[in-house]
């Protein structure tokens, strides 16, 4: 590793559009708000969940176990907030704050030891869109065929699915509701456009019946 070099600041796929997203805020009971949360650390983890390595990796990440139920999400308590998202029966995404990817990768590789697994830094592969507010679910329902009703989905759950024509990792954060949409960088402008379009109607009063 070269010693301290000032690298250019990472440029997220939507950094040019931050003002457009902010300008689309809708307040009040029909409120909805869209933001990009740029440059989160993201590390793909692949291993056999029944292997001893899985327990070691979970422990190293500060978790009692990796989430093994489909759509499970676990957040580790610790100085650095790291969350593990279930993506498949032997696949997880570890999400952390910006710049945390090398540390995550090192921790996981160390815990993996000679156990078989794969660790890939994919931080720049996807960006995060946060959509929140009372009408956030209604916006998503215009393009997502998943059942997002509280009886079927909620905080602490994630799913890989399609939103409009883009593949996303959809994660519910709270009951506001707030959702995080992890989307590939190349799709981010399209998805932001689609969301802004879908949000427009909430600026107007509800259509009378």
């Amino acid at each position: 590793m070269t010693a301290e070099v000032t690298t250019p600041r990472a440029r997220s796929p939507l950094h040019h559009r931050a003002h457009l997203l902010a300008a689309a805020d809708v307040e009040g009971p029909r409120g909805v708000r869209l933001r990009e949360l740029p440059c989160a650390a993201q590390v793909t983890l692949r291993l056999d969940p029944s292997s001893p390595a899985a327990a070691r990796v979970a422990g190293a990440l500060g978790l009692p176990a990796l989430p093994v139920e489909p759509g499970g999400v676990r957040t580790a308590a610790g100085a650095t907030e790291r969350t593990v998202l279930w993506l498949g029966p032997d696949e997880w995404l570890v999400v952390g704050p910006e710049g945390d990817a090398p540390a995550i990768e090192a921790v996981v590789r160390d815990a993996l030891g000679d156990g078989h697994g794969a660790v890939v830094d994919v931080s720049a592969n996807r960006t995060t869109l946060e959509i929140s507010g009372p009408c956030a679910r209604e916006v998503l329902e215009k393009g997502c065929s998943l059942d997002l009703h509280p009886r079927a989905f909620g905080p602490g759950r994630c799913a890989q699915t399609l939103l409009a024509r883009a593949a996303v990792i959809l994660r519910q954060i709270d009951t506001g509701p707030t959702y995080h949409l992890l989307v590939r960088g190349s799709f981010a402008p399209y998805l932001a456009d689609w969301l802004l379009d879908a949000m427009t109607e909430f600026r107007s009063p509800e259509v009378p019946r």
């Binding site: 489909p70 759509g71 029966p89 065929s145 998943l146 799913a159 699915t161 399609l162």
Partner: peptide, 11 residues
Amino acid sequence: PWCGDRDETEF
């Protein structure tokens, strides 16, 4: 068999 019921477009 992992994620549950999903629309055909996801497959």
